[in-house]
Amino acid sequence: MNILQALFFPPEQPGGVSSMIPYIQDRFIKLGWQMELFSLPKRVRSKGQEEVQFETFDHTVYSGNTMVDKYIQTYKDYVWWTKMRIKKPYDIIHAHHPIAALVMKQLFPDTPLVVTIHSSYERELILNGKIKEGGPEHLFLMSLYGELEAKADHLLTVSESFRSYIAPHINHPEKIKVIPNGFDEKRFKPISHENAVTQLITVCRLVPAKGLDVLLHACAELKRRGHPFVLHIIGDGPIREELEALAVELDLYDDIIFYGYMLHPEEFMPFFDVFVLPSRAEAFGSVFAEAALCWLALVGTNVGGIAEQIEDGINGLLVPPENPEALAEALEKVVTDPAYRYHLARAGSEKAKKVYSLSRVISQLKKVYVHMKPE
């Protein structure tokens, strides 16, 4: 069976799906399957000219909106690039982004299409202050879920909470299969170490949706209580300068290290003690599973896929979003009690190995592909 994995971002980009798919490809190839990756290079801009039509809604009512126009142009570019590069048929196409999915079905209507919806782009834009809830951009992006349902032969998503989020916008949410992301234990593994001062780490894009302002206020409270720590922030983004200024304002300059973008943070992560990320929304939160496999104690917010990964007090700690005081209390527990921290980390690792292993993903995807294979 020859399968095309259609991405939007190139696979070398950071992030759960982009970094995971090449490892899925490698596993399938070792099993004797044929599998290729396809994505739109960043250099391809404003090349496509073909008109875009959707089956379930008229996108032209949003014409003139800057964000929607850019989205439609990217769709056209994906069509142009796909026509340029793909010259052979595939048995199945597995798309991991709405644009990739809809373009592939447009150009290869007879090829079975499975689509994994990994995240809510519109929710992130709202939380990051880029668009308004109920505005034209939001309505356009929400309409794409119905279009995906109409065009895809099979829909997948990464968490039960995200399936619930999508449910009001499609006709048959019960048909969506949940396959959580999976991670290679050889890539994410613990390393024995001892730190004199508890080392906290977070890995994410520096955008409002990740709640790092809440984290800094919680760390300031932790410091006021007299608990030493170092917070390592790996990632870059538009609010980096704002966060650095907040760190100075909160007297955290000597307690925080901003690293910027790092291609392979998993090589760095095992040397720390606690992973913390107080996201305001998260469809899955791949980095929590990655950190768990590295034997870090987990502290996250009770939202989306994070709450499905963490059982509070058992394999990590959950706090409400937008609550620095609750986050400080959770951090105090893991900073001041190494034995408790170890207990959480061990339980987190055991669950991650059992539930979020790459082998489990391969097994589940094989069943989907075999079921979809044309006779």
Rank of each mutant, 00 (worst) to 15 (best):
P10R: 09
H193M: 06
S286Q: 15
W295Q: 06
R224A: 07
W80N: 06
F54K: 06
H264D: 10
N128A: 09
L113Q: 15
H264F: 13
W80L: 04
C219M: 03
Y259C: 00
V158I: 11
H138Y: 06
P320R: 05
E332Y: 01
D337S: 11
E350T: 14
Q49H: 04
C204H: 02
V230S: 00
D110S: 13
G211M: 04
L344F: 02
T60W: 09
L298R: 02
G129R: 00
G129M: 00
D26E: 11
A292I: 07
K105W: 13
F258V: 00
W81K: 12
K223T: 00
Q364W: 01
K351Q: 14
E325V: 13
V197R: 03
V355P: 01
M35H: 11
D58A: 10
S120D: 14
W80G: 02
D254M: 00
P136D: 07
F57S: 12
Q49F: 15
T82L: 14
F258P: 00
L250I: 01
F188R: 05
P14K: 08
E122C: 14
S349C: 08
I86F: 02
A152M: 07
M262E: 13
S46V: 15
R45C: 09
P89F: 06
T82G: 11
L127K: 13
D26R: 15
R45I: 07
E50V: 13
K367N: 13
R341G: 08
S359G: 05
I233A: 04
N2Y: 11
I29S: 05
E290G: 01
R43F: 12
H118G: 13
Q309C: 01
P321N: 09
V158W: 13
A283W: 01
L148P: 04
G235D: 07
N128L: 03
R360M: 15
V114L: 03
G32P: 03
T157N: 07
R280I: 00
L358R: 02
D255P: 02
P228V: 04
K47Y: 10
I99A: 14
F9D: 08
H96R: 06
W80H: 06
E325S: 12
N315E: 12
P374E: 09
